[in-house]
Design a protein around this nucleic acid. Sequence first.
DNA 1: ACCATTAATCGTGAAATTACGATAAGCGAC
DNA 2: GTCGCTTATCGTAATTTCACGATTAATGGT
Lengths: 108, 108
Amino acid sequence: MKSKNKFLAGMAHTHDAELFAAMCKALGHPARVMIIHYLKKIDRCLCGDIVELLPLAQSTVSQHLKCLKDAGFIKGEVEGPKTCYCLDESMLEKFILMVDALNKSPQI
Amino acid sequence: MKSKNKFLAGMAHTHDAELFAAMCKALGHPARVMIIHYLKKIDRCLCGDIVELLPLAQSTVSQHLKCLKDAGFIKGEVEGPKTCYCLDESMLEKFILMVDALNKSPQI
DNA sequence: ACCATTAATCGTGAAATTACGATAAGCGAC
DNA sequence: GTCGCTTATCGTAATTTCACGATTAATGGT
């Protein structure tokens, strides 16, 4: 990053842009999109279910799940040795709102 | 990629997932989100305008523009030594449709 | 023809992402 | 307690991304 402090004058929403970019980044891999899709359909599932579904190693799937969890798209609750994952619908809604805002942004 | 050919049985939309992930990836950087925002507000602009706006070198901005162009979000028409960039609104709409589909996906 | 302006591309280095296997950690069942 | 199952984390390698400066290419003006 080079400094040039007229940075974004009149644009104002650096923070929002970063937030939105972070969300998009989390969804920027096919495996993670599949996981979201799957959770939308199945409601809740275990890591192992996704390992069955995708042609990826367990450790890789776990990494993708962590990525989605860090971004807030999914929640995981530990149940004994298992972890049960489900969508955080509010995050998905937030994402949709930001997409809409992006599309209608001239005035905002 | 490991092969395990029950891959996505019943999920069907590998291609869609890849497409959507590619779109998200293109929007997965704050600078590129800012560019989209800016173009939404300004309608058309030159590469140099964005260089003014963002704390990034000209070559870096050019790279981000290429990324957005490759993903289909913006178009650039050469006008002499300049290149005039504008949004491809249809792509944005397509993106929004896919986001909505993601949100309503159980049946699709 | 030459110069200034604008943008794309090249080459490069640093950092992040993606994938894997191996290992550790947690808990239930026996 | 030990074994088996499930998942997270570690270590690592290959690839991709991101940023930069330098160079090249294209065009308009003088």
